[in-house]
Design a protein around this nucleic acid. Structure first.
Lengths: 219, 219
DNA sequence: CAGCTCATGTTAACGGCTTTTACATGAGCG
DNA sequence: CGCTCATGTAAAAGCCGTTAACATGAGCTG
């Protein structure tokens, strides 16, 4: 990593940090990962970056603006992860769709700080246009995948793709929020969250008529 | 309402409030409803109740303990609402099950303050035994309903009831969290959250083989 | 290079919140 | 009546967010 360059010259930090914006975001991620989005503190982030507690205001309107920026970046990474998992529907739309579901959970678990900022920090989506757009693009991946899957069904029995994507989103989000987050408060489960979600999606797709038999994508 | 009795005698509040614990919980509900669980303040609650900012500590260990108590009461009301909706499986298990789903959303919308304290305040469930138990009892309603529904299927094709209840819970929670909460940040939907959830549950049940035809519970 | 300008830091201060400590009140009881 | 203890108050320490006034120095312009 090379996201900071404070005083590389002679060991003494310069008066100007040089990369404070990035450093603050890194700090926010670390702190959110440790103590949750509510426990994150502007002053702490400043300390972590080695600047005074007023310095962050040169880069963010206020504490919430920093959180919103973290959330925006989170949605961008989220979209990338979902896109990678979908992989244009390869090897086949069913498997690719399952892969998207797993990517959703993997993100919630692998990037808890981003996930918290995105869904648990209470940032209103319309606080920032960039944030809303990023969130929209991430959802669009899910929607596109649903649409592709839907076209595999004769048009007269074809379910509405938007509704389908909302269902999958809600199920994924519910599983992630309830069962795949922080170690505290988690309920003992008969199966891993990934399996739970995968089974749920399979059952749902079967209910839509997209899959004929249990355990066998018909592709 | 008659949940407070401060200075009923001569109009001047007595030195001892007489009902501070309840008053603080009422205040918390009002404030959470207004500004979210993060915006809720111990000091505000004290002001609202007309006592000094240190008085609440005679009734709650700290701010989080008050939130936890609100959450516990929320889960108790939640359980009652779900039980009422289930109504012992009347008029038939399918309709009763749908009713439970609607009750889930109705609670999220009708009691946003409780719902926030329960699911969005970041209170660890194991912070309090009473809280964990109350949450468990609420979930038990869902689990029992699932079990009843499952027994309508021949044992050899019967799905695991626990898994089913977890799926329904996750779907309900996902829909509620993403689409049926505060006016800000809500995404434009092609249908009401209630319809979205009901459709999702129907599709899911059909996928399980619990419902034969679209739009017709076979009862 | 001299000097100006402006982005980016710092210090100091205000008000609010949480929590603790020492003290005050008065309700209930023998 | 007088004791005791639950329940209140006042005051203070420490933290946070935010703002205002001031300081620094990087980079352009002449």
């Amino acid at each position: 990593m090379s996201w900071s360059k404070p005083g590389d010259r002679d060991g003494r930090r310069a008066y100007h940090h040089g990369n404070l914006r990035e450093a603050l975001i890194r700090a926010a991620l670390d702190l959110i990962a440790q103590k949750g989005p509510a426990g994150f503190t502007f002053a702490d982030a400043a300390r972590w970056a080695g600047v005074s507690s007023a310095a962050p205001y040169r880069h963010f309107r206020d504490r919430e603006a920093l959180l919103a920026d973290v959330a925006r970046r989170g949605f961008e990474l989220f979209e990338a992860a979902l896109s990678r998992a979908w992989d244009d529907g390869r090897p086949d739309p069913y498997r690719a769709f399952e892969s998207v579901g797993r990517a959703y959970l993997a993100f919630a678990r692998g990037e808890p700080a981003y996930y918290s900022a995105m869904f648990e920090a209470g940032i209103p989506l319309d606080a920032d246009a960039g944030l809303r757009d990023a969130a929209g693009r991430a959802f669009e991946v899910l929607r596109h995948a649903s649409e592709t899957l839907c076209t595999r069904v004769p048009p007269d029995k074809r379910p509405p793709a938007l509704m389908m994507s909302l269902h999958i989103w809600a199920l994924s989000h519910g599983v992630a929020s309830l069962f795949a987050r922080g170690d505290s408060g988690r309920r003992p489960l008969p199966m891993a969250p990934e399996e739970l979600l995968e089974a749920g999606v399979l059952i749902y797709l079967r209910g839509l008529g997209l899959i004929a038999e249990p355990h066998k994508p018909e592709n």
